[in-house]
Simulated scan of single mutants.
Amino acid sequence: MHRRIEAFLEMMAAERGAARNTVLAYAADLEDFAAFCAEAGVAPDRAETATLRAYLGRLHAKGLSARTAARRLSALRQFHLFLMREGVRADDPTATLEAARPGRRLPKVLGEQEVLRLLEAARALPGREGLRATALLELLYATGLRVSELIALPRAALRPGAEAIVVRGKGGKDRMVPVGDAARAAVQAWLAAEDEARAGKPPTRWLFTSRAAAGHLTRQRLAQILKDLALAAGIDPARVSPHVLRHAFATHLLAHGADLRSLQAMLGHADIATTEIYTHVAPGRLERVVATHHPLAQRPPRRRSG
């Protein structure tokens, strides 16, 4: 059974370009299901719908969230489709199963003034530390990149004079994201300081280098940098993370008139329904759109004669 799980995970990574974190999550989910089947005396690749339903019931009894249960069921669906494709079984026992619909959580968002305070805290840091923190924060807020996309940016991602960067996103898909003047200047200042500090050494591959095994800044270190900036800016560190900055990028753009399709392209969302959640965070923007663009919104009221 473990060999089949490994084969499935290899297929997800090689054929579908699944991210490493996705593969690890699927591995943990399938191992958990295999352990449940072992208790029930059932081979996981021969489990029937009743066994799968009992497993989902166990998850509910343990108090797992609807979101987690939905993710586990998604892993099981993908796995059983793989088993059918490989000829291991002729049916899909997950076909009639439904997980509880997870509630749609609104993203946590920082206000525009709070982001400015974070930027001021970054610029106040001395030397290369401040230049790096400023470049990281400016890029996060200017582009809405995922943390995995930001830390893995190559040094050549933003060349002098370029007004956009090409980002390798989920599933190995590339997208082009515009970068404003402030972020471009911050990146060039950081690179100049890096070049000076590394004079005589071979050029680096990454935009944000690190002594970590990957050679670039880790997501953990980036998260800590943002927490430190939050403290310096007088903001609760629990409210600040790379993902929160991505939400701030999207929400503030939408509030200032950006359209959903453009926002979807910049965020790298496969489905615009994912992008639409930001309309719930910035409802005032929708009211302004109607007031500005509806043909009757600007018409003065008719005076009654007599």
Rank of each mutant, 00 (worst) to 15 (best):
D92P: 07
R72C: 11
G103F: 02
A95T: 10
F82A: 01
E98K: 15
R85N: 11
R104C: 12
Q78R: 12
V115E: 09
T134H: 01
P126A: 05
G130F: 13
E98T: 12
A133M: 00
K108Q: 15
P107W: 01
R71Q: 06
E112S: 15
R132Y: 03
A100C: 08
F79T: 07
V115H: 12
E129V: 10
L97F: 13
L73Q: 05
R117N: 10
G130Y: 08
L110G: 06
M84N: 05
V115T: 08
A100M: 14
A75K: 08
G130W: 04
L83M: 05
L110R: 08
L110N: 06
R101S: 11
T134K: 03
E114C: 08
D91Q: 08
R104M: 10
R72M: 10
V88Y: 06
P107D: 05
R77P: 04
L119E: 12
L76S: 04
T96Q: 11
A90C: 00
R85Y: 02
L125S: 04
A124V: 00
T96I: 10
L137I: 13
E114M: 10
L116F: 13
L125P: 09
R104W: 05
R85K: 13
L131S: 00
P107S: 03
T134W: 01
A135T: 14
A124M: 05
R117F: 07
T134M: 02
R104D: 06
A135E: 06
L118M: 04
F79N: 07
L118A: 09
E138V: 09
L76N: 07
R71N: 02
A135Q: 09
R101M: 12
L136S: 01
R123H: 13
L116E: 15
P102G: 07
T134C: 01
L116M: 11
L116Y: 13
E129A: 14
L110K: 07
T94F: 04
E114Y: 01
R101W: 03
H80P: 00
G87D: 01
R89Q: 04
L106R: 08
A75Q: 02
A100G: 15
G130C: 02
T94Q: 08
A135K: 06
P102N: 05
